[in-house]
Design a protein around this nucleic acid. Sequence first.
DNA 1: TTAGGGTTAATA
DNA 2: TATTAACCCTAA
Length: 467
Amino acid sequence: MDVDISRWILEFILRQPLDDSILNALIHTIPLPNDNLNLKKALILRKLESEISNGSVTEKILELLELFEELDHQEGTETLKELKSAYCAVAVECTVKFLNEKGAESDKGKYFEAVKRIWKKRINLMEKMENVGFVCEELWDWRDEIEAALWEDKCCDNVIRRSKGIFPVEAVMVFVREAKERIGPPFLDVVAETYRSDDTVRAFFGGVNEQGTCRNNVREVRKGNALPRQKHVAFRRTRGALARTCGGVRISDSIELGLDASGRQDFLPTPEIEKAQEALKLSSMELRAMVKDPLPDVLQFAETLSSLVRDHMGHQPAENNSDRAPYPVVASSRMDQVNGENCEAQRNCHPSAASKPDLMNRKSAAHTSEWDDSADELIEGSPSGARRFTLPSPKRTKISPLKKYEFKKFTTRRKPTKWSALEEDTLRTGVKKYGSGNWTHILNTYRDIFVVRTAGDLKDKWRNMMS
DNA sequence: TTAGGGTTAATA
DNA sequence: TATTAACCCTAA
């Protein structure tokens, strides 16, 4: 199955109210593209919905939210505030649930473990990484209170009281809703809606089958704005898939998000699933029959136009070339071509039209913000304007901070944490019992007390206390 | 893993 | 500016 088609189907079925087991089986039967961030996000969102379906939250949700945030980073997308709120709410709930009003000792042990697991390891690690989307004042406020509750019963009561004002399941639901809106509807839904509501599109599809006039129809559909003019995510996905430049987490990572614990080997096809498979195959074949990939046409057109320009420029004196724009309309519209917009304008573009003053204005913000100006300058400075057709790749407006963030991960100092009286007393007891120098043994013996400390910290503290 | 020297940031 | 506490680095 074509990778784009399988992606369209996957993103569609992930939005359907199917039972987890059926959905999981379907996912296992369809080849998964490895390089689509939005599809990975859709998988995570579906898994989140599944996790909260019983009305409670688990630490698994924190992991899923972190994965989602990492994908945002890779994409250069700003983290949704709803994601931060959901993460904070879930982290608090997963910790505070071990406390009760009376601070029973049996629950305190679990509380210690939860604080260590969630706030000391997971969230403290995040703090060391700059640009992590979860970083917010609310999270640090909670951390301070939750850590204080380790030592003070009064703080326990405060944390319990305050936690009653958070609603983690609802927060996750709000995030999922917002994330879905940002991703946009599945491509198949958009196509279906367009097909249903637009006569031109219906005529186009009919024309393909009966008359084979696909190219003209495509042009008409685009000219008539039959498809949404906005840069729909589905088109962006197609572009990304064609470019094959997407790095980072492979889809195999996302597959581990499988909607239940069963592996592929455990999957037993039922008649219902087989029926669904057949229906999907049929839909796939129909889609192939109806939809023509515009890219080959565009590339062919670009090549034709390029050779025309080369011929044309070959007859122009160099000094004249410097007075005219090197066909910026073509250069600045490459993205639009791929997006299916302005196709007709591109086809009508002739070298002679490039001298029009309004088309020469490279200062247009819409263009200069998208393209690599340094490359443009190089081309402008070259004696041959025809070279302008070797277009630079579009610049991302946001640069992934992953490299910097990896670097910071290993160089940032921990935030200084003041030693509590209990920690100091425990250290004295430990040294008295096991002797100075056995820091690792003391640390392991009193793990519950030295939640955030290392053996080196114990050594340093003892040195300070002795000085 | 530990000891000891160095660094950083808060505070007097 | 000096002192201090907490943290970091590295040789052994």
